[in-house]
Simulated assay, not measured.
Amino acid sequence: MAADPLSATLAALADPTRRAILSRLALGEASVGELAEPFDMTVRAVSKHVGVLERAGLVSRSRDAQRRPSRIQPEPLREVDAWLQSYRALWNDRFDRIDDLLTKIQAKDGQ
Results as ranks from 00 to 15, higher is better:
Ala3Pro: 04
Ser62Thr: 10
Asp15Trp: 03
Ser23Glu: 11
Thr42Gln: 01
Gly110Glu: 14
Ala12Pro: 01
Val32Gln: 04
Ala2Asp: 11
Pro38Met: 03
Ile72Pro: 00
Arg97Phe: 13
Asp64Trp: 03
Asp4Leu: 09
Ile105Tyr: 11
Gly51Arg: 04
Val80Gly: 02
Asp93Trp: 04
Arg19His: 08
Ser31Thr: 15
Pro38Tyr: 06
Glu34Arg: 04
Ile72Gln: 00
Asp96Ser: 15
Glu54Met: 05
Gly57Cys: 01
Asp96Ala: 15
Asp15Lys: 03
Ala82Arg: 12
Leu90Gly: 09
Gln73Ala: 09
Gly51Leu: 03
Gly51Gln: 06
Ala14Leu: 05
Lys104Leu: 13
Ile98Gly: 07
Gly28Lys: 02
Gly110Pro: 05
Arg61Trp: 00
Ala8Cys: 12
Ser31Glu: 14
Ala36Arg: 07
Ser7Tyr: 05
Met41Phe: 02
Glu37Cys: 09
Pro16Met: 08
Arg71Glu: 02
Ala30Arg: 13
Val46Gly: 03
Gly33His: 07
Arg63Lys: 14
Asp100Tyr: 10
Glu29Leu: 04
Lys108His: 14
Asn92Ile: 08
Phe39Lys: 05
Ala30Lys: 04
Arg19Ala: 10
Ala14Ser: 15
Leu35Ile: 06
Asp15Met: 01
Glu34Asn: 07
Ala14Glu: 12
Asp81Val: 11
Tyr87Met: 11
Ile72Phe: 00
Met1Ser: 12
Ala56Asn: 01
Glu34Ser: 09
Ser7Ile: 04
Arg88Pro: 05
Val50Tyr: 00
Pro76Glu: 03
Thr42His: 02
Val52Tyr: 03
Asn92Pro: 03
Arg24Ile: 05
Ala65Cys: 10
Thr9Met: 00
Ala8Gln: 12
Val50Arg: 01
Arg67His: 04
His49Ala: 12
Ala26His: 07
Leu84Ala: 12
Arg61Lys: 15
Arg88Ser: 07
Val80Leu: 08
Glu37Tyr: 07
Lys108Thr: 13
Thr103Pro: 02
Leu102Val: 12
Ala107Leu: 09
Leu58Tyr: 00
Pro38Asn: 06
Thr103Arg: 12
Ser7Thr: 11
Arg19Phe: 08
Asp99Arg: 13
Asp93Ser: 09
Asp100Met: 11
Arg78Pro: 05
Met1Arg: 14
Ala56Trp: 01
Thr17Ser: 14
Leu13Val: 08
Asp40Cys: 11
Thr42Lys: 03
Asp93His: 05
Val46Asp: 04
